[in-house]
Every structure is written in structure tokens, then in C-alpha cells.
């Protein structure tokens, strides 16, 4: 059964054509250039394009693993059923000044509200999932919408891409042309010889060709599943629009080209390291950091996750370490 939730949105639009939204004690407004967020102890301003790119990931990932920092002030924490929406909570200065604020809301409520904001504030000229070279402007007064782009479904294979009944390799016919920055990627598919009766088990696909046809950036999609082990490759160009705060260890395997990661303490934002990853490099992101990636050319990254629901509590309670390996 689908429950229709009420989104708290202004009856009228402002002079620039946008609705204002409320979620608990948070208020969200936008104008031609900026988004304004108000809460009982403070307020914040963000560029509209940066806000919409971050909001797009938060919505598409259903609040993802752990913390989605839109920037150093505002973001969400996923508790997998409820979501904390916060301002200044992971900013040492805000906390010391006691200006930080957060509320816990049921996931369906924040999901519905954020989807409504994303739909209302994204103009027809802008695709928040696209690289800056592949989209027009987020700015200006209200000008149509781009619901087809902002409602893309996150792709998740149940066993592996290419198996009968599962997600299938991408093609021109399916609306996934090869990206301009991957025009040199070999498009040949593996040769598979199947004996009769084993069609559901003997399968392979070209992961690199599949990724070369991705129409989005910074959006991991599941291609293979071994119990709770999820291979979530993605293509990256320009800057990860959020600063991801981990609630578990995740791993990066650089499949092509190069990404630089700026790594900070998850709770304070203090700089901890810079990680330069080249093709073939493998690196863990500890469970007590936050990170943001920079990809100067569209690259292929394998994000490897453990989807177990037991991990965040084990790490938060100190029963499990924040780093992956003792050696």
C-alpha cells in the first residue's frame, strides 16, 4: 500500500517561481542563485547547483550509508528507518557555539519532502546527476522541470548484470550511448558457451563497457552480489557533490584513470589525509572519516560495500574497529 504523505510546501511561489518547504523546524527556500536553510538556532546559504547535486544523491541513494554532508554545515544521517537532518552537528565551531541543531524524522517523510524539493527546484536546463560538461545551468528563475532526470532509478542487480531476469548490459538501443570520455573503451562482450540447462548460471558481461555507457556521475550501482558483499561500480567526473561520512568501512578500487580523495575526520572536519588513486589501486575508507573525491577525467571506480545492518551499531558501540584490518 502506498501512503500519501503531506509535504509542507508554501501555497504560493516566491517572486522567482519557487515554493518554500518546511521539514520539522527546518525551512528551505531558493532564489535565482542560492538555497537558504533556516533552523531554530541559525541559518545557512548554499549555491543552488551544489545543493541540488547533493540533494539528488541523498534522494537517489535513499540517504546512503551513514552521513551525507551537503557541505561542512548541512546534511543527513541515515539510521535505516529514520533519518537525522542536521545543521552544524559535524562542525566543531558550530558545536562549540551551541548553534548546531538536528531532528530525527521518519524516512518516508524526509524522502517525500526531499523529492518534492528536488522536483520543484530543478529547472529543465539542469541535470544534477550530470557532469558540468553535460548539463546546462541550475540557476535562474523557475523554468520548467527535469523530472525524467531527477527520478532515475538506482540500478541494482540481484545477482549479477547479464543473468536472465536480472539487470542487463547497457546499449545504444536502451538509451545508453558510450560516454564521450570513454569512446576508446572496448565494447566487446565476453564469449560465453553455455551447455543446455545451465543458461541461468553461466554468464558474463563487460563491466568496463557497461560503465562506459553510464549516463550519471557519482552514483554507485550494484552489479554483483555475494550475500552482503555488494560490488557497486560508478563513473566519476568533476567533484563528488557530497562529503560522505562513513558509518562502516568501505573500499575503493580504481578501475581506470585517477581520483584524488580529500579525507577528513568524520566528526570535526579536521584534515587527516589525501589519497591519490590510480588504475589498479585499492584503498579502504575507515569508518570514522568523511571523504570527497575529485576526478579530472571521467573515471571508473569500484565501490565495494558490506551491506550488513549489524555493522553501524558494532562500530558505534566500539565492538568493531573503525579501520578494516589489524596488521
Amino acid at each position: 500500500m502506498t501512503i500519501q504523505l503531506d509535504v509542507d510546501r508554501s501555497a504560493d511561489v516566491n517572486v522567482d517561481g519557487y515554493h518554500t518547504f518546511k521539514l520539522g523546524e527546518f525551512t528551505f527556500r531558493r532564489d535565482e542563485f542560492f538555497v537558504y536553510i533556516d533552523w531554530p538556532t541559525g541559518s545557512h546559504i548554499m549555491s543552488a547547483d551544489a545543493f541540488l547535486r547533493a540533494l539528488q544523491r541523498d534522494v537517489a541513494w535513499d540517504f546512503f550509508y551513514g552521513i551525507v554532508n551537503f557541505d561542512g554545515i548541512f546534511g543527513t544521517v541515515n539510521h535505516y528507518g529514520t533519518v537525522d537532518i542536521f545543521a552544524g552537528r559535524y562542525n566543531e565551531s558550530y558545536r562549540k557555539a551551541e548553534l548546531d541543531y538536528s531532528e530525527t524524522v521518519e524516512t518516508p517523510v524526509i524522502r517525500e519532502t526531499f523529492e518534492a524539493v528536488l522536483s520543484d527546484w530543478t529547472n529543465q536546463s539542469f541535470d544534477p546527476f550530470a557532469s558540468p560538461h553535460e548539463t546546462g545551468s541550475a540557476f535562474g528563475v523557475k523554468n520548467g522541470d527535469n523530472d525524467a532526470a531527477v527520478t532515475r532509478q538506482r540500478v541494482a542487480a540481484e545477482r549479477m548484470v547479464g543473468l536472465p531476469g536480472d539487470q542487463q548490459p547497457r546499449s545504444d538501443e536502451m538509451g545508453y550511448p558510450v560516454n564521450r570520455m570513454f569512446a576508446d573503451v572496448d565494447q566487446s562482450e565476453p564469449v560465453v558457451e553455455v551447455e543446455p540447462g545451465f543458461e541461468d548460471e553461466v554468464a558474463a558481461f563487460s563491466l568496463f563497457a557497461y560503465l562506459s555507457r553510464s549516463d550519471v556521475t557519482w552514483n554507485p550501482s550494484v552489479v554483483s552480489v555475494c550475500k552482503d558483499s555488494l560490488a557497486c561500480p560508478t563513473t566519476e567526473e568533476y567533484i563528488l557533490p557530497i562529503i560522505h561520512g562513513n558509518d562502516r568501512v568501505e573500499w575503493f578500487i580504481q578501475l581506470s584513470d585517477q581520483i584524488t580523495w580529500e579525507v577528513e575526520d568524520r566528526d570535526t572536519g579536521a584534515v587527516r589525509s589525501r589519497v591519490v588513486m590510480k588504475a589498479g589501486d585499492v584503498c579502504a575508507m575507515p569508518a570514522d572519516i568523511r571523504h570527497q573525491g575529485y576526478s579530472p577525467k571521467r573515471s571508473m571506480l569500484l565501490v565495494w560495500e558490506n551491506n550488513s545492518g549489524a555493522i553501524p551499531e558494532a562500530i558505534a558501540s566500539g565492538k568493531a574497529p573503525t579501520y578494516p584490518i589489524e596488521f
Binding site: V185, F208, M277, C283
Partner: peptide
């Protein structure tokens, strides 16, 4: 597009500022 191979690869690395390299494996 730059892929790597056994015959041609170049490693990046962790540039430490306030951390332990082993935490990144």
C-alpha cells in the same frame, strides 16, 4: 582512458597529514 596492466601500472598513495597509513590498507 587509462587502464593499468601487469606490464604497465603506476601506484598512487596515501599522503598522510594526521593519520596512520595502515588504516587505509
Amino acid at each position: 582512458t587509462t587502464f593499468a596492466a601487469l606490464a604497465s601500472y603506476e601506484k598512487g598513495g596515501v599522503e598522510l597529514i594526521a593519520d596512520d597509513a595502515r588504516h587505509y590498507a
